[in-house]
Design a protein around this nucleic acid. Sequence first.
RNA 1: GCCGACGUAGCUCAGUUGGCUAGAGCGCCUGACUGUGGAUCAGGAGGUCGGUGGUUCGAGCCCACCCGUCGGUACCA
Length: 497
Amino acid sequence: MAKGEKGQRTVARRLKGFRDIAAGEMLARERMVTRIRTVYESYGFVPLETPALEYVDALGKFLPDADRPDGGIFAFRDEEEEWIALRYDLTAPLSRYVAMNRELPLPFRRYQVGPVYRMEKPGPGRFREFYQFDFDSVGTASMLADAESCMVMCDTLEALGIAAGQYAIRVNNRKVLNGVLERLGGGSAPPADVALNVLRCVDKLDRVGLEGVRLLLGPGRRDESGDFTRGVGLAAAQIEVVLSYLSLAAGSRSGVCDELERLVAGSAAGAEGVAELREIDAALTAAGYGDDRVAFDPTVVRGLAYYTGPVFEGVLTFDVRDEDGTVRQFGSVFGGGRYDDLVERFTGQKMPATGASIGVDRLLAALRTLEGVDTAAATAPVLVTRLDPKLTAEYLRLAAELRAAGLNTELYVGKQGIGKQFKYASDTGKTVALIIGEDELKAGQVSAKDLRLGSELAGNIGADRKKWLEDQPAQFTVPRSGVVEAVEAVLARYSPK
RNA sequence: GCCGACGUAGCUCAGUUGGCUAGAGCGCCUGACUGUGGAUCAGGAGGUCGGUGGUUCGAGCCCACCCGUCGGUACCA
């Protein structure tokens, strides 16, 4: 290579927060998506796909008083100078779709899976491109739809192998939060920005604790790193209202409702919120979803500004450890709620809606730390080797025969010798390697090698490799006519159950 | 965005108070072994020490800025 050319080579690089997903994770994700889809469909949700790109106004992300999009999204201008952006969730596109298809039978219940994009700081398990799998019911204000959302979340997590005690669905109602905020304002709702700031503080309860929230609501808080966060500046009496709300004892759903009712006394919004929660409780109880699976939790906020009623989140309650063995806070894997105003933006008409979204990648990462998630990167368990290229026609026949019998089979199409072919088979996760040389051909036989057994036994090879090769304890020869049965027998040793 | 820590082979790291051609383990490749991956042994490849500038006779080491990673914080529709 000529001098200087190296500097002109293109550096292989990848956008921050984006990632390549290789076979092992890809296959695991597909299995997971299939299971989730099965649950969603069992409730009658139907699929929808929408474009990854939307006009920014459809996403509702123009900065106030500015002609350009809010930060946090990937946006650019098209040739007509219109702002276009990658979707940051699947809910806004759904709203746009419903607004454009007014003839849809209501309630419209759809599911959708796909990548969404957010220009935020990436972290472990947090990416700028990630998969969400949503289900929503549009066009009904009934709490039955919200209760069902909780049921779907339970069924989904359990279908993914997370047992009833290993997760919790937590439910709250924005209207109850608004009721509390009204009490701060002496009976009327406080200014929107103050309300938002208070909710943000409440949302941080699990991270900063009750005392942290107290500081954040008041003068501000300095964290361990010395960083100072400005407080909301509420009066002491107001802070006490919020804290007493947050200190509500967790209990049965109906018990939480009783306590909430007292706390928001005098607030119409608050009373309505509690009434809605009672409806959800009744539906869940009738359907057999008890407090152990779905709990009412006054501390649940969900950051999304567009939620108008019940909000829910699904959290994992078992410890998630990374490779170092350190316990990692996994946060919520499921999130959702009611958003009654989102479609109205387009149509001017009421179109209540509710639903939830599962973070596919995040949950997959958590699940991989549990047992039982298959991360094998192979799609075919069988490799037909090519010991003698002159016999390729025979190898092609053999491979076709195995496929016809329903066995995924790869024919080695590389150019290396048999030794390398075995290494390739083992590196690509094959379970069985098949060999036909002149000997087998003459005898009407096929040699089969159990590669996994071979690996297990490899420790015993010892010094006398010659003898080991002669014995080949993991290898055996069968009549050509019985090759399918022989391969199936080996695979059966390793198939689950 | 802000604060802090850290960037040395594919991976995990070592590298004395600045001093010759920058090391190890694992992995990878090749051979012993052209009908056998995994054992063993022998060899080999792979680094602009994150980048740029500066201090110095001399910088992986010191200084500045930049980039990246991690942690915290803010934001999270």
